[in-house]
């Protein structure tokens, strides 16, 4: 794990990085990767120091397929001055892990539980963020 992290790019600090900085470092480079356990092959999310399934501590940082299914979704009703209504969802990635995210490019109330979605890394203020778009019209 630290091996991959330390060769991640010129901008990276020297020396080993923990899973959180490794993840966020990739993401800041526009490269979304999640840890896959070398012991059992399962994806682990969020990134941790040891696999939750088998306990192994070595990971490969792999690019997910980007495809997933909405497990639950809501609309946060916010005043316009606070940014307006915003979608918030939980997505089950095809790799078998769940993450919080949001669906963009549609009215925040349109996404439904069970909808197929596709990930994209987008700029949100100072940071890169994994967001999703609806995969196909229902």
């Amino acid at each position: 794990m630290s091996e991959q992290a330390s060769t991640r790019g010129a901008a990276a600090p020297s020396g080993p990085l923990g899973p959180e900085q490794t993840y966020l470092g990739h993401l800041q480079d526009g490269d979304w990767r999640i840890p896959r356990c070398r012991g059992c092959g399962k994806a682990v999310f969020y990134p941790r120091t040891a696999c939750l399934v088998c306990g192994a501590q070595e990971f490969d940082w792999v690019a997910p397929s980007g495809l997933g299914t909405i497990y639950s979704t809501t609309v946060m009703r916010r005043p316009v001055q606070a940014g307006g209504d915003l979608n918030l969802c939980l997505v089950d990635l095809d790799e078998g892990v769940r993450m919080m995210s949001r669906v963009e490019d549609v009215d925040p109330a349109v996404p439904r539980i069970g909808d197929r979605v596709r990930a994209e890394v987008r700029r949100a203020g100072e940071q890169n963020l994994v967001v999703f778009t609806l995969e196909a019209a229902r």
Binding site: L24, S72, T74, M76, L86, L88, S101, I113
Partner: peptide
């Protein structure tokens, strides 16, 4: 909570809303 905070959840209510939406579905 670096894997949730960037999505600006209104906690705690957003979590309960997600649970309610799931229960309904």
């Amino acid at each position: 909570q670096p894997y949730e905070t960037p999505y600006e959840p209104m906690q705690p209510i957003s979590a309960y809303a997600l649970a309610a939406a799931r229960h309904m579905a």
